[in-house]
Design a protein around this nucleic acid. Structure first.
Length: 194
DNA sequence: AGCCTTTGACCAGCG
DNA sequence: TCGCTGGTCAAAGGC
């Protein structure tokens, strides 16, 4: 936070965003160690973490995407099941509203199915890339609403985009605001929102 | 007309 | 081998 305060300059948005990501990352780690909830859940769901904590450079690249929907947690994993996609990863996304399903992630998706999963309150929704037919794009995703926290969406991505769509998050300009919102939620953001 | 969601049926993996 | 379950297909209807 001291570094962010020191470097805060509207002309240096990249630096500020990068520092914001680093702060949130440290904050998440600390919270996870304290209450053992988020991280342990990610590990148990994903079975195996392929890429642990992002490096400084990758954190900078991922930051807008990770923050734009207020809060996301990402967990890469490989499934041992042959029935499922071999490479996939999970993101935990805070939807802005209960109606915002799926959360916008910069890609265009087409819903192709919905299933009620045994023992799960909310149905699981299945999406594939709208360019699957044109570019043979294999990207898919499943969206599952959390039972305990309906505003939290578990988004499981499978395959990768070969269609050339850019993952431009339309809300990337809200990164700093999202950070302050989040700190406010935790009672740590004193003073102004700027 | 074209793209989307919905939804029941079908298929395949797993125990 | 069989039943259960989850992932996908495809027809139908809406926008």
């Amino acid at each position: 936070m001291c570094q962010l305060q020191k470097h805060f300059d509207p002309m240096k948005q990249d630096v500020c965003q990068y520092l914001a990501v680093e702060i949130l990352s440290s904050y998440d780690k600390a919270l996870s160690f304290l209450n053992g909830t988020a991280l342990s859940r990610m590990i148990s769901k994903g079975k195996e973490i392929i890429s642990p904590a992002p490096s400084l450079s990758t954190a900078k690249l991922q930051s807008p995407q990770l923050l734009a929907d207020s809060s996301t947690k990402r967990c890469d994993h490989a499934s041992n099941s042959t029935k499922r996609k071999m490479v996939s990863w999970t993101e935990y996304v805070h939807a802005r509203s209960r109606e915002e399903v799926p959360p916008r992630d910069g890609y265009s998706w087409r819903k192709y199915g919905q299933k009620h999963i045994l023992g799960v309150k909310y149905p699981r929704e299945y999406y594939r890339c709208t360019r699957r037919g044109l570019s043979n794009c294999a990207a898919t995703k499943m969206v599952q609403r959390s039972e305990t926290e309906p505003t939290v969406l578990e988004v499981i991505y499978g395959g990768s985009h070969s269609c050339g769509q850019e993952n431009k998050n339309p809300n990337s300009e809200l990164v700093v605001q999202a950070m302050c919102d989040r700190l406010n939620q935790e009672g740590l953001c004193r003073g102004s929102n700027s």
